[in-house]
């Protein structure tokens, strides 16, 4: 049923898109129709696949590094008041800076290649991961902590056996959010400076008025993001307590 409604919604959107193109008669370099985009996609499938591969590598590495960093930060924040006082305002400040503005700097520091994009992806997901996991760690039901106390549990053991497992559903929702954000980060990085990746391909196609190719790359990115989200969703289902 879920898939059926997704399919129906997709067909509906395609119909509207085609309808607009037909009715308005817009030239194809302004708005190409779905049929043309599909054709272009098929013709350029190997080119698009190669650039998708690059972006996917950036996103997956970024997702991994960002998650590890976020988890470590949240654990530090949760176990030390000093860390909360010092680091938390800084964390908020980094979020106040537009990531876009940092992208040229990252390219300057880390170069044109893979790592400046990974860094962008990390930057963009670090905060949602950290803050969702941290919130989860700080919101352990008080009753569990009372019980642990009457059992003479050490702080460390309460963290390991109670607070972390109780916070895993929060971490799972942070990771699911991150799966959607990470491709955005990587593509921003590619826009600012790169010679490969879907972001690069979109910019290139746009610059040459190959709007159909631009659409094909963009839709590929969209499908990739949805797939990534679904994979992360499935992978975190146990953490979120959705399956036993």
């Amino acid at each position: 049923m879920k898939y059926l409604s997704a399919l129906a919604a997709t067909l509906f959107a395609l119909a509207i898109w085609q309808g607009i193109v037909t009715v308005t008669g817009l030239p194809k370099f302004i708005l190409p129709g779905p049929a043309l985009v599909a054709e272009t996609w098929w013709q350029n499938r190997w080119l698009i696949a190669e650039h998708t591969r690059i972006t996917a590598i950036e996103v997956v590495i970024g997702l991994f590094c960002g998650t590890v960093l976020g988890v470590v930060t949240a654990l530090q924040l949760a176990s030390s008041r000093a860390a909360r006082v010092l680091v938390q305002p800084m964390l908020v400040f980094t979020q106040a800076l537009p990531v876009f503005a940092l992208a040229p700097l990252l390219t300057l520091w880390l170069g044109y290649g893979l790592w400046s994009k990974v860094a962008m992806a990390v930057l963009i997901i670090y905060f949602p991961i950290t803050s969702s996991f941290f919130d989860g760690l700080m919101r352990t039901p008080a009753g569990y902590l009372d019980l642990a106390r009457t059992m003479q549990a050490s702080k460390r053991s309460v963290l390991w056996h109670i607070r972390i497992p109780a916070a895993l559903p929060s971490l799972a929702s942070g990771m699911r959010l991150a799966a959607v954000y990470a491709p955005i980060g990587a593509v921003i990085g590619e826009w600012v400076g790169s010679s490969q990746g879907l972001g690069y391909l979109m910019l290139l196609a746009n610059g040459r008025a190959k709007t159909d190719l631009m659409f094909a790359a963009m839709l590929t990115l969209g499908v990739f993001s949805i797939l990534l989200h679904l994979i992360v969703r499935r992978a975190t289902a146990r953490m979120a307590g959705e399956v036993r």
């Binding site: 039901p141 009753g143 009372d146 019980l147 009457t150 497992p165 109780a166 307590g241």
Partner: peptide, 14 residues
């Protein structure tokens, strides 16, 4: 002491 509350305080993941 051993403590037992109205809420059973069972860990749902265990």
């Amino acid at each position: 002491v051993a403590y037992m509350a109205q809420d059973d305080l069972l860990l749902p993941w265990a």
